[in-house]
Amino acid sequence: MPFVNEFIPAEDVEKYGIKAIDEKFIVGGTDARDWTVDRDRNIYLRNVAMGAGAELELRNQLTWSFYWRGDLLTLRLDLLAATGGPGEPGWSHWKLVWLNGSNGLPQHLRQYKTQVIEDLKAALTIYQGSGVYSADYSGYSIALEIGEGCVI
């Protein structure tokens, strides 16, 4: 089964410890209740915090939990640009600023870094900029750049 956007079912909230993860983000925790998930491969991508403020560069700083085959990773992705509307092709340009702070992948995952990045790209493509709230695009693509100081 490929990635899909959905609201998180109650049984998965329990299975993945979503409530405990929520408490780590934003004062009082996050209330994000949707994700992009591939159950067959045990991978999900979930936006858990958004930048605040009037400046675009701050608002577009997003923190994500990326559960990859048993390991919970925390990412900061900045949305650099996006286009498209209902019935049109959509596109977004992301920049991976950091992965697990400045630590990068855990040692046991470093041999899989290419696959982790490919899976992140696939999840972001299905996410389409807004997950379950995305417009009905005629197609969607993404560009993902790795920040200069990002340790993978």
Rank of each mutant, 00 (worst) to 15 (best):
G104T: 09
V13Q: 01
G85F: 00
I8V: 15
Q115Y: 09
L124Y: 03
H93G: 00
L77T: 06
L56W: 02
I26W: 00
G147E: 15
P2G: 09
A54D: 09
V37K: 12
I21F: 01
E88W: 00
G101T: 04
E148I: 15
G129T: 07
R46H: 08
P2A: 12
T36I: 02
W98L: 09
N60G: 01
E88Q: 04
A135Y: 14
P2T: 10
G85W: 01
K19Q: 11
L58T: 09
N100F: 05
G51Q: 13
H93N: 03
Q61N: 08
T74K: 14
G87P: 03
G84C: 02
G28K: 02
S134Q: 14
Y67T: 14
G70P: 13
G53L: 06
A135H: 15
Q61V: 14
V151K: 11
I43E: 12
Y44D: 07
S141G: 09
A143H: 12
V4P: 09
L45M: 02
Q128W: 05
L124T: 08
E23M: 07
T63P: 03
A143F: 07
T30F: 00
L58P: 04
Y16E: 13
G53F: 04
D31H: 05
D71F: 05
R39S: 12
R59D: 10
T114E: 04
